[in-house]
């Protein structure tokens, strides 16, 4: 599903955020990307959703070479991905329904189809009773569930999550992890960047460890 070959990323000449990363992630895998702050976790995810271009190396997602992809094709790649952020990135002026509907509207889906799918997804994350609320009227955990619903509403091939529980209490973290596990069980490949060792211990899956931009460990329990 995802292949990286000797990927490097340098923001400045003399320091590299990622160095010589080679990795294969099969379809339906659940993978933790871990490491200290500044290890390169977020950079790796940004390369995967094409917010950044690698300085060297090749990245393939579902057979498409992201590195050689023109700007015109990037939106179509992103429609196959779901991305979840630590700060949720919900639009505060829009209702939860409108926020979750966004990726489907971007794809030009019909209104009836959008309404049905958004309602189903919000029900899946337990927010069907709050669909007309605005993000700031919800708790942090609820906002993250809404962000996950927005990522899942398009039935993505790959779900990328950058510290999705970083701002949340441990109990809420459990709820969020259940949502990721559910998506993975339905066939979505999940890549989750975190430095929360407790979470990795409680939900053991394949882990890759980054240190100073290098891949230092790749283990499967």
């Amino acid at each position: 599903m995802i292949q990286l070959y000797n990927v490097c990323k340098a923001y400045q000449k003399d320091s590299s955020a990622l160095a010589d990363i080679s990795l294969k992630i099969p379809k339906g895998d659940f993978l933790y990307i871990t490491g200290a702050s500044g290890a390169g976790k977020s950079t790796l995810l940004k390369l995967l959703y094409a917010a950044e271009k690698p300085s060297r190396g090749q990245i393939l997602i579902n057979g498409q070479n992201v590195t050689r992809m023109g700007a015109g094709r990037i939106p179509y790649l992103r429609r196959q991905l779901g991305v979840v952020f630590q700060d949720f990135k919900l639009i505060p002026t829009r209702t939860i329904f409108e926020n979750v509907a966004f990726p489907l509207e971007v794809q030009g889906r019909r209104r009836f189809e959008v309404s049905k799918k958004v309602y189903q997804t919000l029900k899946q994350v337990g927010l069907e009773h709050k669909l007309h609320r605005r993000p700031l009227e919800l708790s942090g955990g609820e906002q993250q569930r809404a962000a996950i619903a927005r990522a899942l509403v398009v039935d993505p091939l790959v779900l990328l999550a950058d510290e999705p529980t970083g701002n949340l209490d441990p109990e809420i973290t459990l709820e969020i992890m259940e949502l990721f596990k559910g998506a993975n069980a339905r066939g979505t490949t999940v890549l989750l960047a975190t430095h929360d060792r407790e979470m990795i211990r409680r939900f053991p899956r394949r882990v890759i460890v980054l240190e100073g931009g290098r891949l230092v460990d790749d283990r499967t329990p």
Partner: peptide, 16 residues
């Protein structure tokens, strides 16, 4: 700005 960023992240084409 946030709205524009989210639109690009969920696959909005520049003209959309």
């Amino acid at each position: 700005k946030d709205e524009l960023e989210v639109m690009t992240l969920v696959g909005g084409t520049p003209w959309f």
